[in-house]
Each structure stands twice: as C-alpha cells, then as structure tokens.
Nucleic acid binder design. Sequence first.
RNA 1: GGGAGCAUAGCUCAGCUGGUUUAGAGCAUCUGCCUUACAAGCAGAGGGUCCGCGGUUCGAACCCGUGUGCUCCCACCA
Length: 894
Amino acid sequence: MELSKNFEPQAIEKYRYKDWLDKGYFKSVPDDREPYTIVMPPPNVTGVLHMGHCLNNTIQDILIRRARMQGKNACWVPGTDHASIATEAKVVAMLRERGITKSTLTREEFLAYAWEWKEKYGGIILEQLKKMGCSLDWDRTSFTMDPDYYKSVIEIFVRLYNDGIIYRGLRMVNWDPVSKTALSDEEVIFKETDSKLYYVTYPFADGSAGGITVATTRPETILGDVAICVNPDDERYKSILGKEVIVPIINRKVPIIADDYVDATFGTGALKITPAHDKNDNEIGRKHNLKSLNTLDPEGKFTSAELVDDTLSEQVLSYNGIDRFVLRKQIAEDISAIGGIQKIEDYKSQVGTSERTGAIIENRLSLQWFMDMKKFINAHPEIAKAVSSEKIKFHPAKLKNTYSYWMENIKDWCVSRQLWWGQQIPAWYDAEGNFYVAESLEALHNSKPETRNLNLTQDEDCLDTWFSSWLWPMEVFKGISNPGNADINYYYPTTTLVTGQDIIFFWVARMVMAGYAFKNEQPFKDVYFTGMVRDKQGRKMSKQLGNSPDLLGLIDQYGADAVRFGVMISSPAGNDILFDEGALEQGRNFNNKMWNALKLLKMWEARMADSGRMTDDSNDPVNRQLSTNNFALLWFENRLHEVKEEVGGLMDQFRLSEALKVIYSLVWDDFCSWYLEWIKPGFEQPIDADVYKKTVEFFTELMQLLHPFMPFVTEEIYHLLEERNDDLMVKEYSKGKPADVKILAEGALLKNIISGLRDVRNKNQIKPKETISLHIQTKEKAVYESIETILSKQINTASVLYVNEPVSGTITTVIGKDKFYIETSQPLDTAGQKEGLEKELAHLQGFLAMTEKKLSNEKFVQNAKPEVLELERKKKNDAEMKIKVLEESLEGFN
RNA sequence: GGGAGCAUAGCUCAGCUGGUUUAGAGCAUCUGCCUUACAAGCAGAGGGUCCGCGGUUCGAACCCGUGUGCUCCCACCA
C-alpha cells in the first residue's frame, strides 16, 4: 500500500464520520452499563459555528468519547434553542429585506415566516458539528419548541402560577426599544459610555430670583419630571424645601422634596425625579406619591400622550416622534436658548444595553409576568446548597462563589417578552381585564365552565427563552412531558455539563433550580466552564474587528483533528483561550508525525523477518536485535503504563489540556524520537517479527489514548496498522498496570547519556556521520549492559570500551557519576573542554555548598522530615562524588 | 462602590500537602544537520529579580501582610 507523503485529512474525515454513523456508534439506549450523559448546550437555532462552539463541543466530545471507551453507555444529546429575541430579530430583518414589516402581519403569518426560516437555516450548526467529529446521538436531536417541549414549558408556567410563584405585575422593567420587549436583569449589560452631564436650572415658581440647578445626563426626560429631590441634611437647600420650581419648556410646577437617597456630593446635590424613566426615581416617586409621566413610546420616541394635565405648546408637540437621542440634543439646545443650561461637562457613565440587540435600555413601567425567585428557592433548599456542598462540582471551583452570591441576592425574574417567537403565555383575558391561567383554553373551560361564555383573548406575549432552556436536561429525555419514562430514569441526572461561564446565571443556576423543583434531583454532577475564545492579542472575537476566524475554512485547511488539538492544547477549565493559528499548525504537524511513524512501520512490515527464523547464532542480525531491543520494549511498555495512569488522573480532574500535552509528548518524544530510533534496524535490515508486533501494539495503545482528542487520524492509523474487524472509537481501554520505576529510571539515564554525548559531538563539531570510539569509566559496569547497544547506535560509535583510567587524547565529559572519553579524529579543543568542565564544577560546588549549609543547620536536621533529610544527604553525596570525578578529569589538563 | 481571581522564560501556561539535584513544558529564538518515516523534520543549545517590599519558617514561587498592575463578576450617583 502506498501511503501519501503527509496526512490528508479531508477524505478520511468524511469517510470515517459516515462509517461511525452507519455503524450506529453514536446511538445510545438504556442498558445495564453505567450511563455517561451530556446534554449539549443548545446553540441558537439559526446560529453558525464559531470558535466558542468549537471549544465547547470539542471538550464534550472528548469527555463522551473517553467515557464510551471506558465501557460506559455514553449519550450526548444534540439540539437547538429557539432563542426568541435573537431569532425573532433575524426573522424581522429578513422580512424587512423582503419589504415586509412585522406590524403588518398577524401573529400566525409572522410565525409561519419564522418556522420557514427555522426549517431553512435551523440546524446548520448541527451539520457543522459533524465536521468536527462530534459523536452526538443524532436521533435524540431536540428543539426547545418541539411540540412536547412546548407543552412542558406551558405546564411548568401553569404549575408555578398555581403555586403562587409566578405573578403578574406592573413594574419598572428593562426595556429594549429595538426589539420592543422587556428583558430580565441578566440580559442587560452595562457598558462604560462617554456622555455629557448637563446642568439645568429650574426657576422658582413664585417668581423669586434664581432657582435650583440639577445635573442630568438625560435632558430628553425632563418633560416627564415631577419633582426635584435633595438630601434632607443638605444645608444649601434646607431653606427652599417645599418650594415649587418650573420644569423648563413644559412649564410644569413641581415641588422640591427631600430624600436620603440623594447624594449631596454628586453634581449639584439636586436630583430631578422622572418616575417613568428611572428605577430609583420610580422608587422615590412611589414613596412621595408622585405621578409617573411617561414621555417615550415603546420605540424610544417622544410622545406627549400622557401629558394630559399640561398645557402643551407647539414646541412640545413638535417633539412627538423624535428619537430619544436626537431629542436629548434638541431639548438641551432649546433649554440653552432660554438660558437654562449652566454648563455641560464630559462624563463617563455605565449605560445598560441589551445583551442581544445592543440597544441602550430604557427603564419602563409595564405590566409583565414575574417569577418570585426567593419564594421559589426557599421552597427547595437544596438549590442554594448544591454547589457550595459540591454535590454539583464546578470546574474551576472558584466559580462557586459567583453562583452563591447570585443565589443569595436573587431578584424576581421577568419571564414575559413582547415577542411572538416562543412559548405564548398561557393566560387569557376577558373584557373586564380579569385573567385566567391554564394550560389551554380547553383546559380552562373544563376547570372553570363559567369561562366558556366569556370573550377571552390570550396574552400576546411569549416567555423568556431561558424559561424553556432551564428544562433542557430533563425534557430532552421527555422528563416533564412523560415523567418516569425509561430514558429519563436512566440518563438523569446527567453526568457533566460543559458550558461558558457567561451563562452561569442565565442557564446553569436555573437548570439547578428546575432540576430540584421539578424532578427533585440535581441536573448534573460536574460542570466544566470554558472561558472565552480570544484572539492572539487577547481581544474578544467580534465581527467588527474581523478577528473571528472562519472555522470551516480552518477545518478544510488543517483538518478537524488539528483544529481540535489547537483549541485544546492551551485551554485549562475556566481560562480564556487565546486563539493562535500556530497551535493548529502544531496539531497538523502532529498528525504528520504520527502518519510518518505509520509509514515507517509499514516499511518495516514489508521487510519483517519471520520470528521462526530465530537461531542461537549471535551473529544473526535478527537474533541480536531481539535481545538488545529487550530494553527498549520494556522501557516503552512501562512508559505507556505510567502515562496511561497519569492521563487518567488528569482527565478525571478535567485537566484536559494537560492530558493532551502528556500524550503529545509521549507520542512525539518517547515513541517517535526515542523508542522507534532505538529499535530501528540497520540500513535495509529486516526487523524482528516480535519486536514489530510489540511496536504495533504500542502504537495502537497510543492511538487509543489519543482518540478522544483526535478521533479521525487515530481511527485511520488504527485501521492501517493492521487488518481489523473492530473500530477504535468503540474499543474499550484495557486495565492499567503499575509501571516499573527501575526500568523508567534506567531509561531516563540512557536518554541523559545519549543527550549528553550528542551535545559533546555537537560542541566539538563532530559530523553526524563520523563515528567515534567511546570509553566509559564507571564503577557500575552492569548498569550499561542492557543499554550499551542502544547507546552505541544513538551516538554513532565504532566501539564502546570500559576503562579504569582516563584515556589521553580524548574529549572528556562527566554524566552522572561516570566519565566518558570520546576518541575522534577531530582536532581537540582542549581549552574549550576545560572551560566546560570548570563551569560544571563551579555549578556543582555551588550546589554542594547549599546542601552543606542546610545539613549544618541544626534546626533543619531537627525539624525536617526524615525523607527530606535523607534526600538532602544523598544530594550532598552525589554532588561530592561528581565533583571528585570532575576534579580528576580536570587534572588531565594540567 | 462591593467581591473574586491572576501576576513564573519573548508568548501561552504547569508547578497539587512549603523540602524532589540551586525553577519545568510547549511554542518562538539560536547552532548544526537534505541521517534511507517525517525540513510541517532531526540533533543540540541559550533564555528566569517566580511583580515590588515586609513577615512567618530550619527552609518560601508556594503561607501571611502590604503596595503595584491586569482580568472578571455584582451593584448602578443622577
């Protein structure tokens, strides 16, 4: 078989994925094995794959593939989220392009367009995940608006309403004027914004001179002012408390009131009160029984509709329909024209924006549905404890605090959204404004027959997306719609959740709540939080910066395995990862390295000597090979045991990038650079069949160990190494064995000596092809017996001899406790060598002094643990011995 | 304003219970090699005030205090 020069991923990935799929390896049904369950955080139904998904899903695939290979029943559930705001915004934009405005459509017409859009673009991202090799159980693909799912969300809403947890109320909410909906507090992101602080004077109403000056960033709300508020202890204003002032332009008389809330040190110490447009003003307004005058419509444009008690001038009426930010400047100018502006300062303030649309949030008084979170949590005390008690483990653990803090300071959740795409709120209103909550109109009529005669209309609004996604780990197994079914009983609680720490409140915390409240059980055992994927300079990936790489392009260019390697190699849990294409290159190179090792083995296979040919003839090259390779085989076998153990421990602790590093180094360094070179037969010589067989076994084990990280290349090599009837992805790991530390130490010594002598060759400019004669002066000749042939091959010696005295005319070096003399035809750099030995000696003398200082410290000898003390003595002895050897060697130069 | 975390080689990070040969890895850099698997490679090397200061200890990258710088979360004084 002719293997390509380099690993060529494209064709292999396609074929391998299809093969796995066809064989049903991704499928899971309940059985007797231990389940390992992951529910994928459902991406937005119209989303496309980006680096965040890539990282997140690679991690999940690694965990799920490992669990599968451990013999567990691995189940990874895919799906998408209807993502009401984001999707509706996209549909609205699509309609606008076609010249259709949402307001001209009925709800049914709009939803028809939305579903059409969902069918067309929904799930693209799931197809893209296949390219990454994700081993998802596609038969279980779920969507948060599937019929059963929809019903479950409604059912939960009704249940919570009946329990008195969900209520309807007129509250100040976060209003997104772009999508024209209320938002929960979590959906508001505060951003530092440059703005201006306007100092506006309100003249006294009684005509007396002067007035009161307030500082405001929002002149556009002035027409809704109902009072001016100062701190009761503020001496400057005590005398004018209770006086009235005139609101500029609209000429409304408003009182000067006092409230502790006002900070006398900020601005002028006087605050204008606009209860309709600010949360705190609203509070003060309620306390002081003030009117609330709304001056902005749902789109954030001025409206005078509520200003019925005022005399509206032409000027005020002319503001109607003007956008809030245009109006801000306009009103500032108009007040300035009548001399009402004292000064304007530059000012930085935190401005709330919509998480989805980026629009600046307005505070708006509106009737919404809320969930009383304190009441809800108090009804289920496990919710607050689950994370702090580590019943649910967070990785990294530091995020526990974030979770607890949020739980302890939780506020009511606004669950209604003024959108159509989502679960419509199951509440019906009669003509008198009474409302009824039920799972359906029919259910309502059945439970309350008197409602049959009423003319009822359903609430137009739908529920927050997170009010459906919080049921995800349950409802993907029909845990709400069909409780007690075989799937939910088997797969729930799920094992691990992998998600971004940015949605810890939105989603993770709420799933914990839902799990305990509706299933009386935690939703998952471990949560692995990923950080954010940033670019090389540490900037967030964004469309504006253009630093968001085209993932599918990268997969085409480097291969899926290389991309997976690249995102995993430096991404400890919870840390942001800096995306660097160099890491992908490293992954691709790694593929090639393994591919070439495979090619080497295939070459050997073609020239393999039959084991049966073994004779007693020690001159037979194959016979000789087996005995000398004995050490290499033993050593690598034990290295394998050691690393398997180490990797297992790291994976259990979710230290995935470290596990990958360890495997990478085992494959590249230990297997390719050391082991394969040690057993490599001489030019055109055959390899012993047993050595070859063993090597194939090692290679197979390496591929198995690496498989969860790089599934395609490992599966391919697995099949190319030997004819197989099974597949690597479902090959169970064998039980680990303890490593023999003595063999490992010998291997380490051998590597040390080889490196040391190669360094000597390098420094003395001995060409690689030039052979040397090596003389070893050692007291423990036995140590070298098993490694001599390997050593000889690796540093290209003509002969290895053991001596008891220095050999003159050679290059001397000291490694460990032994002296090595290299005989070469090259002219000797005596001075250079002497310098090298002196440098080494100085270093050792420093080291010795340090150990001596410690050992002569009585307190150290008294207090240190015996093993520490013993180690220190050994260090001292070793150093002394080496110094002696070095000094002897240096004598040769005098 | 409140809280959490971080600071180790040029970069990204390990360093777990304070002692493990006077601090490790990968990438990058430098030197030498087209050695019959691999130049996307091989062999080797250099590179550190473990952020500053103080303390605890026989012993500190690690513990404590303090300063500085950065990151994140929460709150939102107009």
